[in-house]
Design a protein around this nucleic acid. Sequence first.
DNA 1: CATGAATGAGCTTTCATTCAT
DNA 2: GATGAATGAAAGCTCATTCAT
Lengths: 218, 218, 218, 218
Amino acid sequence: MPKETFYNLPDKKRQLIVGSAISEFAAFGYDKASITRIVNKCGIAKGSFYQYFEDKKDLYFYLVTKVSEEKVRALEPVMQKRGQYDFFTLIRELFLEGLKFAARNPQITLMGDWLFKNKGHPIYNEIVGVGLQSAQNIYTEILEEAIKKGQVRDDIDPGFISHSISSLSVSAVEYYFQAREEKKARVRKFDEGMIDTIDLLIDFLKNGIGTKGKGRQQ
Amino acid sequence: MPKETFYNLPDKKRQLIVGSAISEFAAFGYDKASITRIVNKCGIAKGSFYQYFEDKKDLYFYLVTKVSEEKVRALEPVMQKRGQYDFFTLIRELFLEGLKFAARNPQITLMGDWLFKNKGHPIYNEIVGVGLQSAQNIYTEILEEAIKKGQVRDDIDPGFISHSISSLSVSAVEYYFQAREEKKARVRKFDEGMIDTIDLLIDFLKNGIGTKGKGRQQ
Amino acid sequence: MPKETFYNLPDKKRQLIVGSAISEFAAFGYDKASITRIVNKCGIAKGSFYQYFEDKKDLYFYLVTKVSEEKVRALEPVMQKRGQYDFFTLIRELFLEGLKFAARNPQITLMGDWLFKNKGHPIYNEIVGVGLQSAQNIYTEILEEAIKKGQVRDDIDPGFISHSISSLSVSAVEYYFQAREEKKARVRKFDEGMIDTIDLLIDFLKNGIGTKGKGRQQ
Amino acid sequence: MPKETFYNLPDKKRQLIVGSAISEFAAFGYDKASITRIVNKCGIAKGSFYQYFEDKKDLYFYLVTKVSEEKVRALEPVMQKRGQYDFFTLIRELFLEGLKFAARNPQITLMGDWLFKNKGHPIYNEIVGVGLQSAQNIYTEILEEAIKKGQVRDDIDPGFISHSISSLSVSAVEYYFQAREEKKARVRKFDEGMIDTIDLLIDFLKNGIGTKGKGRQQ
DNA sequence: CATGAATGAGCTTTCATTCAT
DNA sequence: GATGAATGAAAGCTCATTCAT
């Protein structure tokens, strides 16, 4: 937990620090992220940093929590209409909102995804131990609900499928960044194309694991 | 590229070094992998290491190439029957063979997957720049073929879908290791269960993106 | 020398600061004593501290002086009866009073003894240079007097013997603390035992360096 | 324990390092001793230091052990004639030999005495825990023996008296250095005077705690 | 006069890489 | 070719002291 001093800082400075740190962790991952580089980036003294945070880990935990909260907040509007949507529409909205969030906050996304992809890293277990629930948990939950409601086949392993779905979600974001970079596309235009792509993805999810499936014979 | 001296080494010693290095990169990722630990593990002198390899990066490139080749070789038998299988059967075989390979070579798999998951890492671009094609490329290729043959819908973005498929592949392996760990299952019994899971995954891929799809109405 | 501001402080606050500082120096010695910990302990601001004292050294000098004065004050009653006592009785009273003082003020004692034992430390010479006379000086003085009065042999080096006596004094206190700790003795009971020990010590001092000594032939 | 590398060093270099380190610890004590200063003093690279020793503590333990052994070795000849000497002669020889050792090895002595005087320091307990016996133990042992043999009164607390004696021993060395410094005496001449001083000290010890004592009435 | 944030030199330690034998 | 000691830049972190309000 950051120290009092950090919270007492003027908003602008605090955001500057947070921003610098996020972009550092986004670019280098946990281990190679350098406190020295962070303080240089945001123009504070090394000593000041340690008046704001206990240590590197403290900063990282703070950021991960914050980032996770921000993401949850971004998905909140969708989650609130949870009752009205069927499973696939819900997933679709989550994917779309996730992509929009990623487009708005690429650094945050990169940082978050690093952790998602480095579950073998010691820091991951510490964070999970501290009680942060990952985005993946959301999917497990709503998937189980969907099975109960008969919207999804009951012969699947929900653990496996939700694991797959969150992978797909992260993968889609990754693809989005990668493709945008390569094609140097105008973001606006490009994003529209992305919506179709997501729709397609959802479509194939649905017809794959949905209950309807008259044509699901192998 | 390793130096001449490395290739002049007796097979056994070379394999010892490779094995030690792989398990190091598997356990710690690129950054935290330690040359010191590697040379200790395989009992060679620090100086010798630098007579075999230019530097850490050189070793890593070599291993990644080698590992990638090994994986390709493992999937070769399947790929050779490429003509006989339809797309989904082919994918199924690839997934299964991939899982078997992972079970036989967990270290190699971990090391490979680290790279797959750290595409943002500086080292990734260097490797791609050097010209290593990833496993993902396989999927793009056969997917495009499948579209041509009418086995897969032609309204999909092959780049995106193949990206998704390779994510699913890696994700499945990850899930496999994770679940096996948690359940401390007997490997034999456990693996059988995994086949069903893969079948399910393929099934949902097929009925999702296959052309048949009478029941694919949204 | 503390600044004006320090002396303008309300008594209670001043004492609080002094107490916190003493216990800090007692526990950690000069080098490892932390200004931060001191100000936290007594609840003043870091900046305030530097409005009271020039720096860490200034505080330390002040405390050493103060502590030394307090000790002198504690021994004053004994010293005033100096004329009535013979040397050994005087020493005995000083040792006893010193032990009592130590028992009442363990922190002060620890702090003082640290300095006594770290005469090689840069800070020691600075303090002596500034003109603080140590407790040892007392012994030199009264020892010389005793020689004059014929109570102590005149073939001794008074410098050396007084040095030895003050060492014994500090050593006795150290032993007292140590033994009390180990035996977890009730302070009351334990202290009584200590009186005998002191008596013994004095006895051996006396018959060692006293003039009487018919039996002193080697 | 130092690493292999250290023991493989040429004697001269090893001694250079040991010397630099000892003089550093002698001058600054454990906490303030600086690895940077040590490596600069003996002209090795910072990294080299850590190929010789695990860390600062490792170096310190090594030195303390070494220094302690050297001192024991210096006193060995005396201790071997233990049977032939009576207690006071033995003590006298030990004191004298100790002084000579101190005169020959002032740095070593300073370093050793720092530890002796800082028994409250965390490092002390660690060292004792590791099993290094202090010089004080010698005195306890031979004192108890002397009591058994009837050379020393049996109404004393051996723990306390041996504690006092070792204090006197250290104190004498301290006095020796101090006085020599102040008087800038020629070492040769000065040392001779010191012998008399020691004789005197032993004399007063003997007639104090010896059994003979017809004249020990208070 | 009180406050507490800001500072930066200094610390111990690590590690890929080079060098000398 | 093999060895392993030597190197030094850079890391995370501490803390007495100064500064701005």
